[in-house]
């Protein structure tokens, strides 16, 4: 359960979020809105990358402002650009990096990393230089690096913006099968098939919060 209680935030003078009250318990939730609507900031608050200037956020009753470490263990985060998420030179090492605090031995971490890679369509890439993977494979690797820790929640900030259509579909299918609660920030309305709830943001406020059909009608009306 992710709760936002009267959350507000500003960058300098610019108000990016105000009066956001949400209780997200659904398995598939999307934040939709124009550039600058505050959706990415809101998503970053779920794992404490951004702390709210006012109000508070709770993830399973934990406050990211005070219990950041516990919250980040529960919440995985996939960013838009996979190049800046990959911190180790090979795919296997990058996934193993996630497991560094798991108490497993190095060999076990490498084995576990290879298993996770195989599970998400990157079998045989453990020793492959991470930066030579295709864009779609890199984003899958970023996903693997998060799922290796088996978080309860997965937040994705426009994860398919840099992907082609085929890879976008593949990534979306991968998400569909996950047991995790998924919170996805996106402009890409095609990704929202099967989502339970869509929150539309505009100018830092929630302007619609509904099932995908009605919420997206509202969003389309907003942009035309």
């Amino acid at each position: 359960m992710i709760e936002f209680e009267d959350v507000g935030h500003r960058y300098g003078e610019r108000v990016v979020l105000s009066g956001v009250d949400l209780r997200l318990a659904e398995r598939r939730v999307a934040f939709v809105g124009a550039n600058g609507s505050g959706k990415s900031t809101l998503a970053r608050m779920i794992n404490g990358l951004v702390l709210p200037a006012s109000g508070r956020v709770l993830v399973d009753g934990l406050d990211p402002a005070r219990q950041g470490r516990e919250v980040r263990r529960r919440v995985g985060f996939v960013f838009t650009n996979p190049d800046s998420q990959i911190v180790m030179p090979t795919a296997g090492e990058d996934v193993a990096f996630s497991l560094r605090r798991s108490g497993l031995s190095r060999r076990e971490r490498a084995e576990r990393a290879a298993e996770v890679l195989a599970e998400y369509g990157l079998a045989g890439y453990a020793d492959h230089p991470a930066h030579q993977l295709s864009g779609g494979q890199k984003q899958l690797l970023a996903l693997c690096a998060m799922l290796a820790l088996d978080p309860a929640v997965l937040v994705c900030d426009e994860p398919t913006t840099l992907l082609d259509l085929r890879n976008k579909r593949r990534f979306a299918e991968m998400l569909t099968g996950l047991r995790q609660q998924v919170v996805m920030v996106t402009h890409d309305l095609d990704l929202l098939d099967g989502f339970d709830r869509v929150v539309v943001l505009d100018g830092g406020r929630v302007v619609a919060d509904d099932e995908p059909g009605p919420a997206l009608r509202h969003y389309r009306a907003l942009v035309t």
Binding site: L49, R69, R72, F77, F79, S84, V87, F97, R101
Partner: peptide
């Protein structure tokens, strides 16, 4: 920008927690 994003990604992966 790369440095910013990398820092954010490391924070999201729990580096710096403890």
């Amino acid at each position: 920008r790369h440095a910013d994003e990398l820092g954010e990604a490391l924070a999201a992966r729990g580096e710096g927690d403890r």
